[in-house]
Write a protein that binds this DNA or RNA. Structure first.
Length: 114
DNA sequence: AACCTGACTTCGG
DNA sequence: TCCGAAGCCAGGT
């Protein structure tokens, strides 16, 4: 039979992103790790770029490693900030988010929290 | 097919 | 604290 469609890292990442609960945020590295490659955070960015406009991925829940929105102001920062606040996430004007309070913490993982 | 880029991350100086 | 370099994956040119 056909080999079972080897899910690419992208597919896995998308799957993970879709699982992010509302009112919670995740970092690129976190998603990358869940997808199987903690260092492929870069790929995550590309995925969002390819899906945020045509897919229903909660791209707004994806933020930088320091709990901060990576989008430049005037180009999505406010949009993301608005969406997050709407979900109950506190975001500063600078785009900073309290990871201690809102970072998605799946039970299967426990490495990045140290 | 090759090279470059991307909402990144992490370490070293 | 700021700057620069290396590393990952997939798509576009």
């Amino acid at each position: 039979m056909k080999e079972s469609t080897p899910k690419t890292f992208t597919e896995c990442a998308i799957d993970v992103i879709k699982k992010i609960p509302r009112g919670r945020v995740a970092t690129y590295g976190q998603i990358a790790a869940l997808a199987g490659n903690p260092m492929a955070a870069r790929q995550i960015a590309w995925i969002l770029n390819s899906n945020w406009k045509c897919d229903k991925l909660p791209w707004q829940r994806i933020i930088g490693s320091k709990g901060r929105i990576s989008l430049p102001s005037g180009n999505g920062l406010e949009t993301q900030r608005s969406l997050l606040r709407r979900e109950g996430v506190s975001v500063t004007n600078d785009g900073a988010i309290d990871l201690d309070r809102f970072q998605w913490n799946p039970k299967k993982i426990s490495r990045w929290q140290a």
